[in-house]
Design a protein around this nucleic acid. Structure first.
Lengths: 140, 140
DNA sequence: ATAATACGTAGGAAATCTCCTACCTGTCAT
DNA sequence: ATGACAGGTAGGAGATTTCCTACGTATTAT
């Protein structure tokens, strides 16, 4: 299937999440958050990786809008940008409301551990009841 | 140093962010959030995609812990799981503090009044003026 | 002017992702 | 038992990602 290039002004959520899916790139963001704007060599010093590979990670972060670059002589200072992270938070928001509604304490964690007996706590979602209901995920 | 397969109970952040990087998978999560647990065919009905491809998306979501599956006759009901989303929120939290600290705007104005010569250093911030400059994290 | 430094692009190999068609398994209806 | 249905696995094509080495460009130092 073919993809149409629309190149939106605001980076797509796809790009943002994909950029965050790499431990190298998340570590770069952490460094920028904790230590402020830095040159490429300062950022790269902790990574066992060829420089061009690291540059590629910076490009991904840049295209997602997560960092910006400022030239300073022959160095380039990278800086953390807040907007895409705020977009992640905004995306997350309705889910947060969802889980606050159903995560009453440790109920969920306990469910996940051992549930071999017959008392299925999801039984109350009958096939008809579960479908076509908007709003309430689980009763009780 | 080999990797031991311990099949961790908590999915890695890598898997979570990667799972969220697809619009199809984010839409599945939205459907589960808004309409509650659903069968595969209900979920899939809105997507122009072969069923096995859709199954693959569900597998990615499952392995990231974002959904869980319950068998009901010949159907399988998928349900949204909160824990990985809460982990994303936790990851985001220190960044949120970061950007709240610098999106205040007033601070940037005060920073600009600090220098004594008459040169217009506003030129520096013209390129990325959306968020203002760092005050307390400047290198050098 | 020449060399060194900082950082990027070019292009390729290997792995991974995303879609497909074909086929298999388990459950329900007749 | 036979067939229809729900949903998965197998395996492959094509795109993308992630790493590499080699080279290019801009800036500073000698």
């Amino acid at each position: 299937m073919e993809r149409v290039d629309i190149t939106p002004a605001a980076p797509a959520e796809d790009e943002i999440f994909a950029a965050l899916a790499s431990p190298v790139r998340r570590e770069v963001l952490r460094l920028l958050r904790e230590q402020g704007p830095q040159s490429v060599q300062d950022l790269a010093s902790g990574f066992a990786m060829a420089r061009p590979s690291f540059s590629e990670h910076l490009r991904v972060l840049r295209e997602a809008g997560l960092v910006s670059e400022r030239r300073d002589g022959r160095r380039r200072l990278y800086r953390l940008e807040a907007v895409p992270l705020a977009r992640v938070r905004d995306w997350l928001d309705p889910y947060e409301r969802f889980w606050r509604g159903r995560l009453t304490g440790l109920r969920d964690l306990l469910d996940g551990m051992d549930d071999t007996d017959g008392t299925d706590d999801m039984d109350d979602i009958g096939d008809a009841a579960a479908l076509g209901r908007t709003g309430d995920q689980e009763t009780r």
